[in-house]
C-alpha cells in the first residue's frame, strides 16, 4: 500500500504542546485506511497494524475512512516519528526524500504479539 503522511490540525495543535508529549505521539501513530481494504484484511476500528518499508517497521493504530474519501490502496497518517521510521533517505539528487509516497506492507498485529 502507499502511505501518505501529512499534516492534520491535531498534529499541528499537539506539537505546540511539545513533541515529546503523549498527545502528539498518539496523533502521529494512528493510520487511516479505506474501510473496504480494512474489511478485506479483517481489521476493525482501533486494531493495531504493522507497517513495513525497506527502511523499517512500526506498529500503529488503524482507523477506517469512507472509500469516497480515501481510495483503496492508500493509507494516511500524520507526520511524526512513525512516518520517519519508514521513510527512505534517497532524494534522487533533489534533497527531498519521497516523504508523501512511501510504499509499505500492512499486516494485522495479533493480540498479545505487541510488546
Amino acid at each position: 500500500m502507499t502511505l501518505i503522511p501529512g499534516r492534520t490540525s491535531k498534529q499541528g495543535t499537539s506539537l505546540n504542546a511539545g513533541k515529546l508529549k503523549a498527545e502528539y505521539l498518539e496523533v502521529t501513530s494512528t493510520v487511516e485506511m479505506n474501510e473496504d481494504d480494512m474489511k478485506k484484511m479483517k481489521l476493525k476500528d482501533g486494531d493495531r497494524v504493522r507497517l513495513r518499508s525497506p527502511e523499517g517497521e512500526v506498529v500503529v493504530t488503524c482507523r477506517p475512512k469512507k472509500a469516497s474519501d480515501l481510495p483503496s490502496g492508500i493509507i494516511f497518517m500524520a507526520y511524526g516519528p512513525s512516518s520517519s521510521e519508514l521513510m527512505g533517505s534517497d532524494t534522487a539528487g533533489s534533497g527531498m526524500p519521497l516523504s508523501k509516497q512511501i510504499e509499505v506492507r500492512v499486516e494485522a498485529v495479533g493480540a498479545g504479539e505487541e510488546g
Binding site: E55, G56, Y79, G80, P81, S84, E85, G88, S89, P97
Partner: peptide, 10 residues
Amino acid sequence: DPASNFPKKA
C-alpha cells in the same frame, strides 16, 4: 527537529 522527522539513516 530532524531527529524526529528525518529518514532513519539521517
